[in-house]
Design a protein around this nucleic acid. Structure first.
Lengths: 263, 263
DNA sequence: CTCGCTAGGTCCTAAAGAGGACTTGAGGAC
DNA sequence: GTCCTCAAGTCCTCTTTAGGACCTAGCGAG
């Protein structure tokens, strides 16, 4: 009953989108292939071009196809980067390189600024507007030139003020190793906040996203043994490029103090 | 340079969507308030109704507003359920209740079936099509009647065959406690795969999602001490209702064996 | 008072068409 | 050969127009 008449009374653009998706999955067009032009598709499905465009827009938002203005619409390869939340520190400590060495790092800006509200919201001990050192970065695939990640790091003034972290140049090693050195404390605990959402207009532009494509957003809070914040880092990826993997032991008894809450 | 002329040459529907978003953020309309009708908005912004609708569709996909057919468009409350990945077992073991006691559970189906390809893809030791016991569930907010989560559990035949897990009735306690009892093994390790994407047509219908709204999807693999799979569970939420929180210690030295890879 | 009908307002889908912007490739000028 | 120009093909934005579906409130009949 619940899943009975799916598609029977669905709008045309959805039915057509479903059919196109199926044809792509079945391999009628391979990754990289160009789909027929919108006018040709509209004729084939016997509907108007605007409605046809609406159907293609669905697949574009899903990341199944990519439209190039003036050129055509192409099937995209399904490819998700697997990212592990927990091992980032251990691995980088070992070889001391940047965490994402295969990508090209660009520093969009660096310097002091106010703590954004959405960052302060996940901290108990900070207010929006507090002055911190902010480093905004962009990671690009050097092979294709595709932007893969945009993000920022927020470091307390007491650690980063008057240091090279205020300079808009790429740091020589993993960011957290620099912070540890400057702060004289080790990273001891971390908390990640993961949300999926649609991008801001800025993110749409910087990441070159098609309209309607979602992003994955993580805010990473790192603290020292004494509980003080060493760094807050946030990253935004195109959702269709990323899979987060989290591996952990199941504690036989222990329970955490708080119940799930809402904000 | 990178973020200079944002919006200057953006299409109308985007500029209008941005303006509407700003007005909502600034409190011009409170959560629950009805926006002016599309015809009125179109007149106010001096553009056609279809273009106006496209602008509103942006906010709808973002989860900022909700349109009710024949009634109007209303500002939604921003409200994310915080969900912790790590403490689900500890807490449930403590009071033995269902993990999400405040939601109403419905079993959509239960019985044997083939393992879906996207589940097999995250397992090393299973093939798509393997016969397992599948329980599909829907969680609803009893206060509002809103569907909040749709998901499924996959349990090996060796554990669940010929048991009450094949019956489409709600289990009396947390699912994993039932599995532990039937298998005679404890849950020891877990691995979560998080992805954000646009929903399938089925999910759109079951969760009552507006077009273009993304979902968060997790596949949770639970194994016993000996490495055998006890249960694979997957859940899908509307993305604008959920925030995943993950808290963990930073290991001072240890590194995990494998580098990030692609699939 | 209760019930059912109706009218008006609202959002939803669809078509047809015009103009614009972008890319590519062919042909001609140098 | 190299560079430029141009035309064709493609996707992008926006408008105008039409009809349908859905909900609510008000009115009248019983």
């Amino acid at each position: 009953m619940v899943t009975s008449d799916l598609g029977a009374f669905a709008p045309k653009y959805q039915r057509v989108a479903n059919d196109l998706r199926r044809r792509i999955r079945q391999g009628e067009w391979q990754p990289g292939d160009r789909l027929p032009a919108e006018t040709a598709l509209a004729e084939h499905y016997d509907l108007s071009v605007p409605t046809m465009r609406q159907a293609v827009a669905v697949l574009r938002a899903e990341g199944a196809v990519e439209s190039r203005h003036g050129v055509g619409t192409f099937v995209k390869e399904e490819r998700r980067l697997q990212r592990r939340s927990r091992d980032r520190y251990g691995r980088a400590r070992k070889d001391s390189r940047l965490l994402t060495a295969h990508l090209e790092h660009t520093i969009l800006s660096a310097g002091r600024g106010p703590l954004p509200a959405h960052i302060a919201a996940v901290l108990d001990d900070a207010e929006p507007g507090d002055e911190v050192v902010i480093r905004r970065r962009l990671l690009t695939d050097p092979k294709t030139g595709t932007p893969e990640e945009v993000g920022a790091s927020y470091v307390p003034l007491g650690i980063a003020a008057e240091t090279f972290l205020e300079e808009p140049t790429v740091v020589p090693k993993a960011m957290f190793l620099c912070v540890e050195e400057l702060a004289g404390k080790r990273y001891a605990q971390a908390r990640d906040h993961w949300i999926a959402r649609l991008p801001t207009p800025e993110e749409t532009q910087v990441l070159g996203l098609p309209t309607g494509a979602p992003v994955m957003h993580v805010i990473h809070v790192a603290r020292a043994e004494d509980g003080s914040v060493l760094e807050v880092s946030e990253s935004v990826w195109p959702a269709d490029r990323i899979m987060l993997i989290d591996e952990y032991p199941v504690e036989p008894e222990a329970a955490m103090p708080e119940a799930p809450s809402e904000i």
